[in-house]
Design a binder for these strands. Structure first.
Lengths: 107, 107
DNA sequence: AATTAATGACACCAAAAGGTGTTATTTGAA
DNA sequence: TTCAAATAACACCTTTTGGTGTCATTAATT
């Protein structure tokens, strides 16, 4: 394999092009050339992004004839959600405090 | 300013050292040297990470005497949560399907 | 069988990332 | 008023990133 690496989900979604790729593949199965037509970068670049997403488990590829079709696999994003949930309480605390303040202000 | 840039939240949290920094600053206010003692990298490197986090709005600095103290500002993570919520339905769909399958299996 | 479409696999490049160490400056303490 | 602590500001280095173009290979098509 060529584009092998240890990309995790955090690194995978850090690039805006890759986030767009994920959005594009929602509910659809698309070939590499099909995907490339939706972006301002060339096929090789798109392919690299797809491999990075694939390494992170965010997309899966399937060969259909001479095409390689990609589909979204959002499950690894759960790790991101778990990471977020730890911090959630902190901004929730603030929002709750704000809410409380507003409510008290209405008395 | 030196470490100026247009780092967004996605890019800011893509680095494991920076994620550790956020965890370290939860509920605490720490000086740069204090923070550096908790990491295997030197002060200059820590400072760069802090500036990147600061540019993303994830930390705030405050000068106290000759120290620069940093605190966590988790609010920008809301953007990440919003981004995630779009994809949430897709893995939820699968989990719900699995749940349904298990429940039907119990009949 | 010959041609074309869709990729895979490279080589190559400029810029950004993540580190290092050094020097200058500001501030608290002795 | 010296001296040491804390950090800002650089210069510098290596690896990774995100992109390009080219050539080879494999599968449809005519």
């Amino acid at each position: 394999m060529v584009y092998e690496s240890r990309h995790d989900v955090f690194q995978a979604i850090s690039d805006p092009s890759r986030r767009s790729l994920l959005n594009l593949l929602v509910g659809k199965e698309m070939s590499i050339t099909g995907i490339t037509e939706c972006f301002p970068i060339n096929r090789t670049a798109v392919n690299k992004h797809l491999h990075i997403l694939s390494n992170a488990g965010l997309v899966k590829s399937q060969k259909v004839g001479r095409e390689t079709r990609y589909t979204l696999k959002p499950e690894p994003l759960i790790e991101l959600q778990n990471w977020l949930s730890f911090f959630e309480q902190y901004w929730d605390k603030k929002l709750l405090a704000l809410k409380k303040f507003i409510e008290e202000d209405n008395d």
